[in-house]
Design a protein around this nucleic acid. Structure first.
Length: 279
DNA sequence: ATCGTCATACAGAATGCACG
DNA sequence: CGTGCATTCTGTATGACGAT
């Protein structure tokens, strides 16, 4: 445990920087040295090949984002890799950032970062709607309401003695259109659909449940479900909202050295008021 | 009895592809 | 068009084990 501390039950890694009164937002420092490279190809969803700027060598890198990212992963796109520390890994590098092919905006690609950003936001009181919970559990297993024996995990369960539990599922978003519209998902996700159905089931049990979309770039002005790519997810989300699941979305500030939660953006759900707008 | 460390197992991460 | 399989890595839980 020498490498981490605990705040409200949340393990906070040492490289996280806690906000001071001078920090208007929550910075998550990227300490690893980054290497600039250009994207070459993606042989499978977990691996990319990229050409290091410094040496011209083409290297294998782990892709920590299984989404399609068609509009980003164009040959020649500037990417930033970190060197893997674990010598057993088959990929000696990890893809961390990509520059937008058109306007150069830096985009963070690690789908696990939103979970960490949310955890730190919780621990430091960034979210007014999630304050007052004394206990935080992560990756809590729940049975799917309409499936035999299928169990999945919800990212966070917040609780306190005198109130219903609050379940939170975070979702990583990287797809943002030129007009600022962010869409989730970038590829059909039956798992994501199952998650929102489960959240609706938890609301039916009397608990509170929320989806928190974290857009890992600053240029989104609003978010909605990607009806074109995944109509089933879009419908499941609509229904979940109708059943009382709360939906929130946040953008991030992204630099090569620091990723931080920026601010909330509205979530558009057709024909229904998002709970967030109530208060 | 409790704790830390370690190994292991498992689900999950915004899939993609071959195959029938 | 659905099914099944393969791809790489990580966070968490769990249990064994030895030390305290």
């Amino acid at each position: 445990m020498a490498k981490s501390t605990t705040i409200h039950g949340i393990i906070v890694r040492r490289h996280w920087v806690h906000p001071s009164p001078f920090d208007p937002y929550l910075p998550m420092r990227v300490d690893d040295p980054l290497l600039q490279a250009t994207f070459v190809e993606r042989p499978n969803r977990f691996v990319i090949h990229a050409r290091l700027a410094e040496t011209g060598e083409v290297v294998r890198a782990h892709c920590p984002n299984p989404g399609r990212m068609h509009e980003l992963l164009l040959p020649g796109a500037v990417v930033y890799l970190s060197r893997a520390e674990d010598p057993r890994r088959r990929t000696p590098y990890t893809l961390r950032f990509i520059e937008h092919p058109q306007h150069g905006q830096l985009i963070s690609l690690n789908t696990q970062l939103p979970n960490q950003l949310f955890a730190e936001g919780l621990a430091t009181g960034f979210f007014p709607q999630f304050q007052g919970y004394s206990r935080v559990q992560r990756e809590v297993s729940v049975p799917h309401p309409s499936a035999n024996g299928v169990v999945s995990r919800v990212d966070f369960r917040l609780s306190r003695p005198d109130a219903p539990a609050c379940w939170v599922e975070t979702k990583s978003v990287t797809l943002v259109h030129e007009d600022g519209l962010a869409e989730f998902p970038d590829a059909p996700t039956t798992r994501g659909r199952r998650h929102v159905e489960e959240l609706a089931g938890l609301v039916a049990q009397g608990d509170r449940a929320c989806v928190v979309f974290i857009v890992q770039r600053p240029d989104a002005t609003r978010l909605r479900a990607n009806r074109t790519t995944d109509p089933a997810f879009a419908q499941a989300l609509e229904q979940a909202v109708a059943q009382g699941v709360e939906v929130y979305a946040y953008t991030c500030r992204v630099t090569l050295g620091c990723i931080s939660l920026a601010g909330p953006i509205p979530v558009e759900t057709s024909g229904m008021e998002n709970k967030m707008e109530h208060g």
